[in-house]
Amino acid sequence: MDKKIAVKVDDLTVAYNYKPVLWDIDLEIPEGVLMAIVGPNGAGKSTLIKSILGILNPIAGSVAIYGKPYKKQRQLVAYVPQKGSVDWDFPTTALDVVMMGTYGSLGWIKRPRQKEKKAALEALEKVGMLAFKSRQISQLSGGQQQRIFLARALVQNASIYFMDEPFQGVDATTEIAIINILKELRKAGKTVIVVHHDLQTVPEYFDWVTFLNVKKIATGPVKDIFNDDNLTKTYGINYKVSIQE
């Protein structure tokens, strides 16, 4: 493959207490793909993302972003956590949450200014939430909250996007809006990695897929490896998806 490797994971092993959650993961994600990470509950999908991002400390292994350690490449990476990971009753507005996406490039102490605000407003417009910019975040619907999180990552203007179940608990309209934005990101040459649960939509949404169940089962183009064989290996039951239809 002559494509550049955006993310390279070597021998990654992560454990909570004694039981390994991820075992010896080797993974290469080429630049410019829209990749789904699929696997059953407890397969370590979120853990994989969190370990790559340095939120969790792995027992062994290393992660490289465009060939360099993550710590040096932070500004190339943006993260969309699970919507349920924060308290949406926090006293703040939609715009304010999106502005948080600029904090990383600002660094310590410096305050966001007009330039940062403009970037945040643009991101809000991209996700169709400009009209809600002053809304208290608890008064947003689940889908709108997810869009706000997406906008916060867009503000970071990164090259690689990691998203933890962005389609969880959103309605069909929001799902389509989000996937369109992800496809636009790919078109712009960005790499997008998504923890995904709905197997039916994998062939339609993604061009790259990683099967994960503590160990890496398979990774590659959807059209080559998204088949009953890999699904059965990953989910443990005899899985049949009629993806040809």
């Binding site: 993260y79 956590p81 924060v86 949450v97």
Partner: peptide, 22 residues
């Protein structure tokens, strides 16, 4: 006053704060 932005970020979303390099 100095660390207002950092405090707010940590209070709202600690994991995300980490990924931003704080």
């Amino acid at each position: 006053l100095l660390f207002w932005k950092e405090f707010k970020l940590l209070l709202f979303d600690a994991d995300y704060t980490k990924t931003l390099g704080f």
